[in-house]
Computed example of a mutant assay.
Amino acid sequence: MSGHQPPPVVELRGVGLTYPGPPPVEALRPCELTVRRGDFVTVTGPSGAGKSTFLNLVGLLDTQTCGTYLLDGLDTGALGDVDRTALRGRRIGFVFQSFHLLNYRTAVENVALALVYRKMKRVRRVASAREALARVGLEHRMDALPSTLSGGERQRVAIARALVGEPSLLLCDEPTGNLDTATASSILSLLDELNGAGLTLVVITHDAAVARRGGRTLEIRDGRMTEQAVTC
Rank of each mutant, 00 (worst) to 15 (best):
P20N: 08
F54Y: 04
N56Q: 11
T34K: 11
S47L: 04
L60F: 06
F40N: 06
G50F: 01
P20D: 13
D62Y: 11
Y19V: 04
T44G: 13
C31T: 15
T42I: 06
D62P: 00
D39R: 02
G45K: 04
G50I: 09
A27R: 11
T68N: 07
F40R: 11
G38C: 03
S52A: 01
S52V: 00
P24E: 10
A27V: 09
G59H: 08
G50E: 05
C31S: 15
K51I: 01
A27T: 11
F40T: 06
C66N: 13
V25E: 07
D39P: 01
T68M: 04
F54G: 01
T63W: 09
C31P: 00
Q64V: 10
P30D: 07
F40S: 08
T18R: 15
G21Q: 08
L28Q: 01
L57K: 08
N56A: 10
T44Y: 08
L55H: 02
V35R: 03
Q64Y: 00
R29C: 11
V43W: 04
P20T: 10
T53A: 09
T34N: 03
T34L: 09
G21E: 06
V43A: 03
L17I: 11
V43P: 04
E26N: 10
G59N: 09
T53Q: 07
T65L: 07
P46F: 13
L55F: 15
E32Y: 06
P20I: 10
G16S: 09
D39A: 10
L60K: 12
P24V: 08
Y19T: 01
G45T: 01
V35N: 00
L55C: 03
T42C: 12
P46C: 12
A49K: 05
F40E: 03
P46Q: 13
V43Q: 06
P46Y: 12
V35H: 01
Y69E: 14
L55T: 04
V41F: 05
G59M: 08
L60Y: 05
V25M: 11
F54M: 03
L33D: 02
G48R: 12
P23A: 14
L60N: 11
R36N: 02
T53R: 06
V43I: 14
G59P: 02
S52G: 03
C66P: 00
A49T: 08
G16T: 09
D39S: 07
E32N: 13
P20G: 05
A49Q: 07
G48T: 06
G21W: 12
K51F: 03
T42H: 08
D39M: 00
R29T: 14
Y69C: 12
A49G: 15
G67W: 05
R37G: 12
P23S: 13
T53H: 06
T18A: 13
G59L: 06
P23E: 14
L33V: 06
G67C: 02
G38D: 03
T68H: 12
L57S: 01
P20Y: 05
T44E: 10
L33W: 11
T65H: 09
P22V: 11
P30C: 05
G38S: 07
V41R: 07
S47D: 06
L57H: 05
T65G: 05
T44W: 09
S47V: 08
L33F: 05
T42W: 05
Y69W: 11
